[in-house]
């Protein structure tokens, strides 16, 4: 979104409505009993879609230079690196590694 791009009103209101619907959906899903990991996956999936909507339209990444999107995604990448590698430790603390025989 450059200095001269005026935010479209309809899109803004539409985004807010979509966010509301998704919030209601996520609470509704909470009361439905999915098998164990699926619950978390659905909840996080909806949250991710909501966050993406906020980023694209409220924060204007949809119209903006692609580099700003790259900046945002880089933070997610490095967060995933951090949690991914830490889980390599915390989930396998007691597992002996076969290389030592």
């Amino acid at each position: 979104m450059s200095l001269h791009h005026v935010l479209p009103l309809k899109t803004m209101i539409g985004t807010a409505v979509a966010l509301f619907v998704l919030t209601i959906l996520t609470v509704a899903v909470y009361y439905i009993d999915f098998p164990d990991p699926l619950n978390t996956i659905v909840a996080l999936g909806i949250a991710t879609v909501k966050a993406a909507l906020v980023c694209m339209f409220f924060m204007g990444l949809y119209w903006d230079t692609k580099f700003n999107t790259l900046v945002l995604l880089s933070s997610l990448l490095f967060f995933l690196i951090m949690i991914g590698i830490i889980l390599l430790d915390t989930l396998f603390r007691d597992a002996p590694f076969q290389i030592y025989g």
């Binding site: 919030t23 996520t26 909470y30 909840a43 996080l44 909806i46 949250a47 909501k50 966050a51 906020v54 980023c55």
Partner: peptide, 8 residues
């Protein structure tokens, strides 16, 4: 956005 993740 952070609250959107904190809530679930």
């Amino acid at each position: 956005i952070i609250w959107i993740f904190l809530f679930p």
